[in-house]
């Protein structure tokens, strides 16, 4: 057998073996890898590479090496699942670097991080001032997680007691002109209804639609294939909100204009009622 043919066969075989081993080792994200996972990965890769291109290397021995490394990694990840002490031993513990705003120099030394490394980690988390940090932790994968002091945390609707619309994740219902019927019926909508919605937004057929997405409110966002025939659509909900506010203002005006005391009171009351309605629906009236 000519040498180049053997090399081709080796390379192809190693390619598929590597693929299978990678699938067996699972889908831990690269960013979640601990240092140990990382070096095992490199070792497996270089073993595979040398078997693939070095003729003097026995294919069988290379295969054995690969299998042993994969098997051991699997065994280790299984052990760290089963036993806490093994987990500490294999993956290590997260290290607290800053606590209550105090940098813990001893811990920094223990994990051999310089102050510059710490500052870089903080800045990557959008923290530029040490004084903003409540806790910073070096995770086992080498990343730094930061909890800011509560006065520096971003304002959430909950903080100011604002009621917001609960929204679940939106789903695509048309992809490249094809209606995803299963998903549509799972969401409880019919194809006919969807057709009406996409026609309102300028498509004449499902085929004209590149992507359509339904949010949990039942709003349909349509992206047409031909970008130029998009017609300006009227945002329904903001329009409704504006309409309500206009009526409320009108009611107040009527209350001022009339001389009839009963009517004045009635207009005034109803304007207050309407204001309540507006307050109630306001969080829902954003497109």
């Amino acid at each position: 057998m000519p040498t180049y043919l053997e090399m081709i066969i080796r390379a192809v075989a190693i390619f598929f073996i590597l693929f299978i081993l990678a699938r067996i080792l699972g889908k831990k994200q690269i960013s979640q890898l601990t240092f140990f996972d990382y070096v095992t990965g490199i070792a497996i890769g270089s073993m595979a590479a040398s078997v693939a291109i070095r003729q003097d290397q026995s294919f069988l021995y290379g295969f054995i090496g690969l299998s042993v490394f994969t098997g051991l990694s699997l065994l280790f990840s299984f052990l760290s699942l089963k036993s806490l002490t093994m987990r500490d031993l294999i993956e290590g513990n997260p290290t607290v670097l800053v606590q209550n705003g105090e940098v813990l120099e001893d811990n920094l030394k223990k994990v051999r991080l310089t102050h510059a490394d710490l500052m870089m980690g903080l800045r990557r988390q959008n923290v530029f001032k040490l004084s903003d940090v409540e806790t910073a932790i070096l995770e086992t994968n080498g990343r730094i997680s930061v909890m800011k002091k509560s006065q520096n945390q971003p304002l959430t609707p909950k903080d100011i007691g604002l009621s917001v619309l609960e929204e679940s994740s939106p789903s695509l219902v048309i992809v490249d002109g094809h209606v995803l019927e299963k998903r549509l019926s799972y969401l409880g909508y019919t194809k006919e209804w969807l057709k009406g919605e996409v026609m309102k937004q300028g498509a004449s057929e499902f085929e004209d639609v590149f992507l359509a997405q339904i949010d949990s409110q039942g709003n349909v966002y349509v992206d047409l294939r031909k970008d130029q025939n998009r017609s300006e659509k009227v945002p329904q909900k903001p329009l409704l909100a504006a309409q309500l506010r206009k009526v409320q203002a009108d009611l107040e005006m009527f209350a001022l204009q009339t001389n009839d005391q009963n009517a004045k009171q009635m207009y005034y009351n109803q304007s207050k009622e309407l204001d309540k309605v507006i307050q109630m629906v306001n969080p829902y009236m954003k497109q």
Binding site: E166, S216, Q217, M266, N269, M280, Y284
Partner: peptide, 27 residues
């Protein structure tokens, strides 16, 4: 909408609007 909270809220809003309409129609 499929969201039960939102559904309830819209129904309430429709009802209250209905009450207001009745009052003003009387006027």
């Amino acid at each position: 909408t499929n969201n039960q909270n939102a559904k309830q809220m819209y129904q309430n809003a429709a009802q209250q609007t209905q009450t207001i309409v009745q009052q003003i129609e009387q006027r």
